[in-house]
Simulated scan of single mutants.
Amino acid sequence: MGKSSKDKRDLYYRKAKEQGYRARSAFKLLQLDDDFHFLQQAVRVVDLCAAPGSWSQVLSRRLFPQSSDNSDRKIVAVDLQPMSPIDNVITLQADITHPKTLQTITELFEGKKADFICSDGAPDVTGLHDLDEYVQQQLILSALQLSTCLLRKGGNFVAKIFRGRDIDMLYSQLGYLFEKVICAKPRSSRGTSLESFIVCLGYNPPANWEPKLDVNSSVEDFFQGCDIGKLRLEDKCPNYHEEPRSIATFIACGGLSSFDSDATYHVDTSTPALDPVQSPTNPPYKKALELKRRGKMTRAI
Score class of each variant (00 low, 15 high):
G127K: 08
D268R: 07
D130T: 11
K6C: 15
Y21E: 07
E290K: 00
K112N: 15
L289S: 14
R299S: 10
N70L: 03
V76A: 01
P186H: 09
V45H: 00
S147N: 01
K28F: 15
G254C: 05
W209D: 01
G164S: 10
L151E: 04
G229R: 08
A122D: 09
K112I: 13
M169G: 15
C226M: 11
L141A: 02
E110R: 08
C226T: 08
A51T: 10
Y171M: 00
V158Y: 00
F197H: 11
C253T: 07
C253S: 01
N239M: 02
T298F: 09
I182Y: 13
V199G: 02
G202L: 03
Q40W: 15
K286I: 02
S189F: 07
S193R: 05
D227S: 05
H98S: 14
Y203A: 03
S257A: 12
P186G: 01
A263T: 11
S54G: 11
T271P: 03
G202K: 00
L92M: 09
D262S: 02
Q31M: 01
F178L: 04
Y12F: 08
I228V: 02
R293C: 10
Q93G: 13
Q137P: 06
S188N: 07
M297V: 07
V89R: 00
S188V: 10
L29M: 01
H37M: 11
T101P: 06
T101G: 05
V135A: 04
L201N: 10
D227F: 08
N204L: 04
A77Q: 13
A252L: 13
S257H: 11
K112Y: 13
L92Y: 03
G111K: 08
K287P: 12
L30G: 04
E110P: 13
P206E: 14
I198V: 15
D34Q: 06
K112Q: 15
K160E: 05
Y240H: 00
